[in-house]
Design a binder for these strands. Structure first.
Lengths: 154, 154
DNA sequence: GAGTTATTGATACCATGTATCTATAAGGTG
DNA sequence: CACCTTATAGATACATGGTATCAATAACTC
């Protein structure tokens, strides 16, 4: 997760203007360690800066996504609620999402995945160019909690 | 991809009623070999059976998804258009999606994936319970086409 | 400080899906 | 077969996530 200043510098370097609203949204985004929905972000921003428009939040999210500062992740939720956003660094990596507390850990495991890709390429004659992989499970902390007491949200 | 009759029988067996609208949506779904959006399905159904309500289409898609006859897949599309549906058989498997023609091939590659899961579990102490994996690339037919001429949609 | 232009906020809009509610029809029962 | 029960249908309104548009504003350049 890069710092606010680093991202601002990069925006500037790429010719984007360093506006107040952008800074605000960026700060709010980088504060979050777990995935958030656009609605959650929008709510938080309305608390701290009620003058900022909804469109600006979406535009900034979109910009940050294109820059790789934020990733969109998919969830098997109902309704339109299938997207969440997550601040993360740029390198290609995958996410490990805790079912219980929502925390996300990154992992970079490319050897096994490349083996899989090569095997599938061999068997199907596809030329594989990309992948989406997310693992879901229970993080160490939540596992410990559920072993001691039955409360399901930690 | 199971046949229409097999799915109807299963619906019946599980206590669902075999109604006209359900049959129609089911037939329309099973005809499709490539992923489709709800809008595409709805359009097609309006052509052949204009009296069927939109809600019924969504309800049937939902039912078929719960039964495993249809899978929701995620795409990195803009707007709300992130979902597509795909008729497929029930076994757990993954999808191989052609960037060019949209065709989807299933693959069952669990050895390499399990190796990956075990490795990540070891390194992160997560208890991994599930995954989402989709590979995207170019199918053999499209690869041949793009090699001969430059047209990008096959 | 002035000018250019990217960006903003407001508003209206679109698309995907769900909730609700009355009418209907499926399928079991006599 | 007629009847009853209840799942399901269609209609409508609504919720949500996101985009298009457009006049006003504020960043940066000179």
């Amino acid at each position: 997760m890069p710092g606010v200043e680093a991202v601002l510098e990069r925006l500037n370097h790429e010719g984007y203007r360093l506006t107040g609203p952008r800074r605000l949204v960026l700060v709010e985004v980088l504060q979050r360690a777990t995935p958030f929905t656009s609605a959650e972000l929008w709510d938080a921003i309305q608390q701290t800066a009620p003058t900022i428009g909804r469109a600006t939040v979406f535009r900034t999210l979109d910009l940050l996504t294109r820059l790789g500062v934020v990733q969109r992740i998919h969830r098997d939720a109902e309704a339109g609620r299938c997207h969440a956003y997550l601040a993360c660094d740029e390198r290609h990596h995958h996410h490990l999402i805790c079912n219980s507390c929502g925390n996300v850990t990154d992992f970079h495991e490319d050897r096994a995945l490349e083996a899989l890709v090569r095997e599938v390429e061999r068997r199907t004659a596809f030329q594989i160019e990309g992948h989406r992989l997310e693992l879901v499970g229970t993080c160490p902390a939540c596992r410990d909690n559920t072993q001691s007491h039955v409360g399901d949200k930690c």
